[in-house]
Design a protein around this nucleic acid. Sequence first.
RNA 1: GGCCCUGUCGUCUAGCGGUUAGGACACAGCCCUUUCAAGGCUGUAACACGGGUUCGAGUCCCGUCAGGGUCACCA
Length: 519
Amino acid sequence: MTIRTRFAPSPTGYLHIGGVRTALFNWLLARRHGGQFILRIDDTDTERNRAEALQPILDGFRWLGIDWDEGPEVGGPVGPYFQSQRQQTYLDAAMRLLQTGWVYPDYLTREQLDAEKKAADAAKKPYLHRGPHRNTPAEECVRLYQAQPTTLRFKIPTDRVVVLHDLICGTCEQRADLIGDPVILRADGRALYNFASVVDDVLMGITHVIRAREHLSNTYTQVLIFEALGAKLPLFAHVPVVNEPKSKKKLSKRDMAKFVTPEIRAKLHAIGWTDEQIAQRDDLNPATVAFYREMGYLPAGLVNYLGRLGWSLDDKSEFIPLEQMIAHFSLERVNDSPASFDPDKLYWLAGEYMRLLPLPEKVAGCLPFLQRAGLVSEPLDEATRAKVERIVVACGERIKLFSDILIYGSPFLRAEPVYDSKAVEKRLKKPGAVELLRQFLPVLAATEPFDAPTLDAALHQFCTDRGIKPAELVHPVRVATTGTEVGIGLFDALAILGKPEVVRRIEKCLHLLATSETA
RNA sequence: GGCCCUGUCGUCUAGCGGUUAGGACACAGCCCUUUCAAGGCUGUAACACGGGUUCGAGUCCCGUCAGGGUCACCA
């Protein structure tokens, strides 16, 4: 039998990290066994959904490389894949259940229901709604409903225990008499999640329902509906929730705003986002996929991280490329307990993938960040492109995220260095530093060719002649030419700047120092 | 509160009756070094607690505690 899995997001406008992990597990299982992965859009709640909110989700999946065999934009044999377009299907299924006595019409008003609930709360009893027509014969229920359509409720059988053999949780049980009769169809005919989901899973031939743990309690109801529909039960696997960093609280979609901490905001500012722009993009948040894309994370790193969160290949593997993950993925090795999202480990993993990335792709990935920051022209001329490539090469493994190019590349792409006051204090205002720089300047001017090995040799010769340590000169030169202590190797830096610019910057820096000292 | 689920280093995890409880991220120290990264070496650090079962328990059972999820005409 071919494995068919599905991910069924609601179009909310962003792709949540926890959701992606669930989708990934579904996708992985399907790919592992040569089955199909289906993307279904659960948009039954028409009041909440907006059409344009779907695109970011699709974009996010495409960026990550998680493709779907059936679903939006690709279609498929058991569509449509939008629940909002399947109302007739749900209605038909509901009518069948009405005729077979599994479902009854409920004419109670909202007020009556609220009163019931209040009474139950007051009596400190769990609230379980059972409608008056629960025991009305099926034919009568059909007649009532046809005469006056209303909400339809599913009749939970109260004399049994629902047993669920979950692939991750093991055997879970729930007494059915503790489950209230759920509404499956609103008076206007729109289906509710618990019903639509089951009808679709049956019709779409879903074999494995892999979803978040918070759905576990829904599953007992759904199992009953599957049975009422006379359908074969799919296999269930409820993956544990993803928790907030360093926390045991679920990484929730609800209050994502709090994840935009001052640190996160600072990171966004550093790559050129303004507060207004951040405010306009509610998906610019570490709980969404879009955030990592904007920060320049490699999708492969995110996928690896998410796949490894709650699942393990063995006792050692951390770096698990996609092909390997597909080849070895199994639900048995999905952990049974919640996992906290760890940004540090994700960052590390992203770097591991970055170091493997071929140079042209690395350059191509960095360029948009430089353009956004206004550090390179757009369109790009060949000379600038070549310069950026030299910078990227010189950066080596320092670039873990594409946006890191801003840290290392800026000093070479800006017209003037931005002097870090601490660095100036420490390296240039140190006694003797200025004099050393002044003496070294002619050496630099005479160095030919102006490349890293020659510069290296020249500086060392200069230091040896004077009996000083290279570090004493290296630091002032670095700060004078780049403005900062942090960065790529000095000789690479000088070579990239070129002789005229290096000489100009040092002369200007010396002048600046002289005037600030007299002031 | 009812129901359900979960408890191994700070975090992600390995472990499926016998291990000096292993690896990774993070952290600390040392080495390398022109800074920052990277790399190398070393270190700190865990079986929630209490009862059983067993020759032997992180592993099985029970209880306690803690954390989480869910109790909608949301998904």
